[in-house]
Deep mutational scan, measured.
Amino acid sequence: MSGNGNAAATAEENSPKMRVIRVGTRKSQLARIQTDSVVATLKASYPGLQFEIIAMSTTGDKILDTALSKIGEKSLFTKELEHALEKNEVDLVVHSLKDLPTVLPPGFTIGAICKRENPHDAVVFHPKFVGKTLETLPEKSVVGTSSLRRAAQLQRKFPHLEFRSIRGNLNTRLRKLDEQQEFSAIILATAGLQRMGWHNRVGQILHPEECMYAVGQGALGVEVRAKDQDILDLVGVLHDPETLLRCIAERAFLRHLEGGCSVPVAVHTAMKDGQLYLTGGVWSLDGSDSIQETMQATIHVPAQHEDGPEDDPQLVGITARNIPRGPQLAAQNLGISLANLLLSKGAKNILDVARQLNDAH
């Protein structure tokens, strides 16, 4: 009898209710805020589980004197976190989706994509230029951005401005803007500013005609071990179906173009009346040469937790077992079709030249 009692006690200790789920994140304040929001949602869904947040620095956090596009290494903000995932030191990792490459290392998958916040870019102005827009900034004003995508589009749109690289986390960039006289304004992701509670610093939100956004911008991705079915089931509740389908289309477009950090590629997606609209573009580094096109596809946005595919093969690095396969494939095909259209119009040449120029500098 006593033996059975011990077995029952052991089973209770090993039951999922007692389990601590370890969540990996970057150390920056924004990353911690984003991770806290994901953990809060998981806690609400699984009140019996405990969650421990483990923060670590990544290569991208450490190399702050070089433009991201020049470092010449993929997975700048993800490699150390993936290493911890691989060694079973954490069970899942919360990322900004735009930091996750469209091809993940073997053994990993994006197990959830959370509801997207505003994906557009924002302009934050130096205190002396508050009330201005990019259009009304004085001639030769210097605007800071760490992104080739932003610089290429904005140089084309605002030729009277000069664009220079600015690195560091959000706090560091804002301090550089406010305390030094080098920059009249800087460009940042609206979602990051909003998550930090800095709505009052948003001086201008850039519309798609001015600057399309990065693939996955404004959404959070939760990376897990691809074979860890328990954790895949656990994080599945975080999937937002519309965000998922938009981001599958965007990531398929980028992957098929073979774009990345070192080339200016941008997108804009919208879901309306059962249609998914995808606009994508590529630019030369100075913005003088560009190709942009829009395509659409009829896609039914499923309700969360309709029964999805059981075999769960990944699409552009994403596993969404609780979302039907048909809409996911339709979104992926839309991204591939748009990429093929741009490639047929000469996108590869623009991107190759951009890559060579970026590598040469």
Rank of each mutant, 00 (worst) to 15 (best):
K27E: 10
S28I: 01
S28H: 01
L30T: 01
R32V: 09
R32C: 11
Q34L: 05
Q34C: 06
T35G: 10
D36N: 10
D36T: 11
S37G: 08
V39T: 08
T41F: 08
L42N: 01
A44V: 13
L49N: 03
F51D: 07
I53M: 08
I53T: 07
A55C: 08
A55D: 11
M56S: 14
S57C: 10
L64M: 08
D65H: 10
G72S: 13
L76Q: 10
K79E: 12
K79C: 10
K87E: 10
V90K: 01
L100E: 13
P101C: 01
P101S: 10
P105E: 06
T109R: 01
T109M: 08
I110G: 01
A112G: 07
A112D: 04
A112V: 07
K115Y: 06
D121R: 01
V124S: 06
F125G: 01
V130M: 09
G131I: 05
T133Y: 08
E135K: 04
E135Q: 14
E139K: 15
K140M: 10
G144A: 11
L148S: 06
L148H: 04
Q153F: 01
Q155L: 10
F158T: 14
F158E: 04
P159V: 14
L161D: 01
E162N: 05
I166F: 13
R167S: 08
L174T: 07
L174N: 04
Q180L: 12
Q181Y: 14
S184I: 11
I187D: 01
M196W: 05
G197R: 10
R201P: 04
G203M: 01
I205L: 14
E210D: 09
C211S: 11
M212K: 01
Y213G: 09
Q217W: 01
V222L: 14
V222N: 01
K227P: 01
D230P: 11
I231P: 01
L232E: 04
D233Q: 09
L234K: 12
G236F: 01
T243C: 01
L245V: 09
I248Y: 01
A249N: 01
C261I: 01
V263D: 03
T269F: 01
A270E: 14
L276R: 01
L276V: 13
Y277A: 13
Y277T: 06
T279E: 07
L285I: 09
S288Q: 14
Q292Y: 06
T294Q: 01
P302S: 05
H305S: 06
D307Y: 10
P309K: 13
E310T: 01
D311G: 14
D312P: 03
Q314D: 01
V316M: 01
I318L: 05
T319E: 04
T319D: 07
A320Q: 03
R321T: 09
L338Y: 01
L338P: 09
A339Y: 04
A347V: 03
A347H: 05
D352I: 01
V353F: 01
D359R: 15
A360P: 01
